[in-house]
Nucleic acid binder design. Sequence first.
RNA 1: GGCGGGGUAGCCAAGUGGUAAGGCAGGGCUCUGCAAAAGCCUCAUCCGUCGGUUCGAUUCCGACCCUCGCCUCCA
Length: 467
Amino acid sequence: MALKLFNTLTRSVQEFKPLDAGGKKVGMYCCGPTVYDFAHIGNWRTFVFADLVRRTLEFSGNDVTHVMNITDVEDKIIKRVRETQTTLREFTGKFEAAFLDDLKALGCREPHQKPRATESIAEIIALIEKLIARGIAYQANDGSVYFSIAKYQGCGCHYGQLLKLNLDEMRAGERVASDEYEKESIADFALWKARVPDDGDVFWPSPFGAGRPGWHIECSAMSIKALGETFDLHLGGEDLKFPHHEDEIAQSEGATGKPFVKFWLHGAHLLVEGRKMSKSLGNFFTLRDLLAKGFTGREVRYLLLTAHYRETFNFTLDGLHGAKTALARIDECVGKLRELAGGVTAAPESGLPEQFSAALADDLNISAAWGAVFKWVSAANKRLAENSMNAPAAAAALAAWEKVDSVLGVGVNSEAEIPAEISALAAERTAAKKAKDFKRADAIRDELKAKGWVIEDTPKGIKLKKN
RNA sequence: GGCGGGGUAGCCAAGUGGUAAGGCAGGGCUCUGCAAAAGCCUCAUCCGUCGGUUCGAUUCCGACCCUCGCCUCCA
């Protein structure tokens, strides 16, 4: 089924067709983290969204090259490096590692390439030189190099592709003192920031003098290097549309004279407990905060994947509890199927995979996709309860689930190892029950519960689950 | 001020010009020594308000109210 996606460039849902003549290869770039702190749950929504896009493409048989940059030089980073008296690499390395750990905990497939801004300085400089040569960039009296929107537009290029812009009515940013700049026009943006004393050791030599790259240029340089001057998909959070992505387009198209990206995808933000996330409201969570509360990465992933990517989503702790229960329902069903299937394998049964992929093909309608999953769970449970399923049927159902889970990525909870102490207690309880010593049996049940294990009596005997 | 999203059950969230998916919570039942767990069943005369178009609107149009985002730090 043809995948349709909302392209910010055209502001419409369009069929996605790879640029690749073979129709298989897809180049996808997602703006990655600025490693100055732990990423928060809002950031994670975007990265999980990117993972969904990638997995959906792979599910459809595409060969995706997923590139995600690591922004490891930037104002906030430099400030903190100075404050904490460390080196740039030491400081950013810590948060980069934490980011990748978290990404893994959330079940995201690792991007094929993760270029660092600091290791792409040569490409960045080359791109700036190209822009200067074409007369679109200029060096100001402060030593910094800026991109000229006016010159760019003078070349017949269009600034404002991702949103309607009215440059005359644009307000100057309140946090940026305009006298700090020597730009020709307020809308111009920095490509290369000249070194200032506060930068400390953070600077690189360049034909324009010592300094460091501006924010937007790194993404143009790295994405072009990895994916070519024109590539398929570029995604990020909706706040990046302007100025970041708009400026990326301007720099890239200004330098290459070619269309930069075919499809721009933007993920909406989230609210936490119904409010905009903020540290003062106490609703600002990193993944680590949530793990510390006893939730798992897959539960967070599930919750982040319950709403459509273009809608603001309300992330709540209550919802996270619901996610735990909902996943347990799937786990229970899949566990029973696995048990019944034994070692038997089979081709996926039809129904679920078709409904699931039809939902995703419709601009990633993940809610409808989950709807199909839970209807399937319901039906499977019924067949299981009726004993109307044999091993091959269970294997086929299981294969269908595994197929859709290659996109959902929530997997199945791996059965926890049961410690000897726990299974001994369970055996003791079974014996007590048999002897009709229910008082003793219940005491053991409570003891197990206190140790974090729930004992279930099923028609086939007891089952132990980690709580 | 400019531009752009939203308002669907207690909560979260899909969706359609023809009478409201799914999840969580709640209620009932089955199972059980009792529980728990699990499973099954149930749970919106109604989709922000007011008008309009229509045989028919939650879905289209208009106005209004509320809310969120972007406007050069920002996922």
